[in-house]
Write a protein that binds this DNA or RNA. Sequence first.
DNA 1: TACAACTACCGTTATTAAACCCATTTTAAA
DNA 2: TTTAAAATGGGTTTAATAACGGTAGTTGTA
Lengths: 212, 212
Amino acid sequence: MKDKALINIAIADDHPIMRKGISDIISSFEGFSIPIQANDGRELIEQISKSAVLPDICILDISMPNLNGFETIKEIRKRWSSIKVLALSMYNNEFSIIKMLASGANGYLPKNTNPQHLQRALAAIYYTGYYDSEQAIKNTSGPNQQLKFTEREIEFLCHCCSELSYRQIGDLMGISVRTVEGYRDALFDKLDIKSRAGLVMYALRNGIMPIE
Amino acid sequence: MKDKALINIAIADDHPIMRKGISDIISSFEGFSIPIQANDGRELIEQISKSAVLPDICILDISMPNLNGFETIKEIRKRWSSIKVLALSMYNNEFSIIKMLASGANGYLPKNTNPQHLQRALAAIYYTGYYDSEQAIKNTSGPNQQLKFTEREIEFLCHCCSELSYRQIGDLMGISVRTVEGYRDALFDKLDIKSRAGLVMYALRNGIMPIE
DNA sequence: TACAACTACCGTTATTAAACCCATTTTAAA
DNA sequence: TTTAAAATGGGTTTAATAACGGTAGTTGTA
């Protein structure tokens, strides 16, 4: 009887201690089973492939070796569109949240969440297909308000985190230095920043560029 | 009988899931008790103050609100020099390891450690007063080899992560621009970096400057 | 269809950063 | 005590960056 109602969870996280924490917490809830645990995205995909029964929900860490959260979720969407995904991340900045949800996640939780939130998120995703991550977004250390950047500005910001000169960035983006400087000035304005060093820090601190 | 031999552990980590993982793993070992769990350094210090029996070992996360790992360990050393400390960190870069050990930690573990290592570390620290963190250091994403920086170079590197010009950094450090440029060039040389943007990235990626 | 936003480009000027050259003094180590 | 390294300062030259000022085509949408 009971088995019939069990919600199957798969966990992918490269921190064994974290996996233990997540799985023990979920085990303490009623009606959940955790048939799959993986150390990274690639392992997760392999285990799901071999599994007789698909998990209902995958809990994905964002930063993992081999396949990170973003890559893993795309692979899952491609192969098993019915599987729901709950993203879990240390870096609760607006960008990784948006990117994760844009990649097809059904919900997002920062890692400093508590067991109650985890239970609520899993239930919401299972029964409604979606968990409102509002709270996670409210606590972000990300951009202050509704700062909007254009695609090209973000692209430029990423290239900024390198030793390329603006001229070289222009070559990479297929535009002139002047245009690059235009994007720079727009970002300076929006972010109240006055130097490239400031842009680099902004990008790294807000997860626009990965730390590692 | 058994109680007599129990090793008391205190845990400070701002991630409830992580605390759950750590405590469940330790509970599965023989001879350990976890009387204290705190969400940050300040809470930990308060709880120890009120506690009748001092913990034998504190497990400290490095990045925490209120009192971070570095600050917490200094406070512990000041008040209760007998308490041993095991540092635990997401950012396993050489700098935070060195800084933690220099602050008085008896051992260091990266968070992607497994239960066996945790047990070994706790036992080693309790019985020998020290856990050889060699393995953690080997896996660091930090400086390639035994890169050595001088005090002033590190100081300069921190000021680099700002919008100050070299001239302003010189004013701050009480030296001329030329000298600042000297430190910059020394770092460029050692790190094979050619721009300030590169220095900023190096400092943030290696924990010389905090991400948040 | 206006209008806003994004994209792309150009010029001028001042400041900063970077790539070299170099010397002196102090401190630490061999 | 010689040697090495660190900390400090200087000069020159070139390249990159930053702060202004613009124009024009495209795209999306109210």
